[in-house]
Amino acid sequence: MRKPMKFSVLLAIMLGMLLFVSQLAIAKEQAQEWEVINPAGTVQIKQEQLAPRINTLEGKTIVLRWNGKHNGDNFLDRIAELLKEKIPSAKVIKLYEVDKSTIKISGSMAESTRIAQVIKGLKADIVIAAQTD
């Protein structure tokens, strides 16, 4: 009766050691050398001719652009009042009053281009736009 019991105890110890060793292997995951593809991608950068800068608003044509977001028109209306009061020689054009098709989030490059063309047609020296939320 004793021999089988000794054997069982020995077997239990061996199994326990095996489990312990395997757990140690998991805990000590070895560092390895990796080579991976960098998924960051690239961005194509083009050199563009900058628009001329202005150093005064006196006598300039200032276009105010509203994208339809709540209160952007009210904000720009007040800016227009202040421009007329402080810089009376400036010509202020509210794009959202002269061309209502521009009151929008463009949503695409094509529509952005179209709106930019409308502004260009107004011979703007500078555009002030409201991006409200």
Binding site: A31, W34, E35, V36, I37, N38
Partner: peptide
């Protein structure tokens, strides 16, 4: 795409 070499665990 460029490749990154790195030494370490998966984590």
């Amino acid at each position: 795409a460029e490749r990154i070499k790195f030494k370490g665990t998966y984590e």
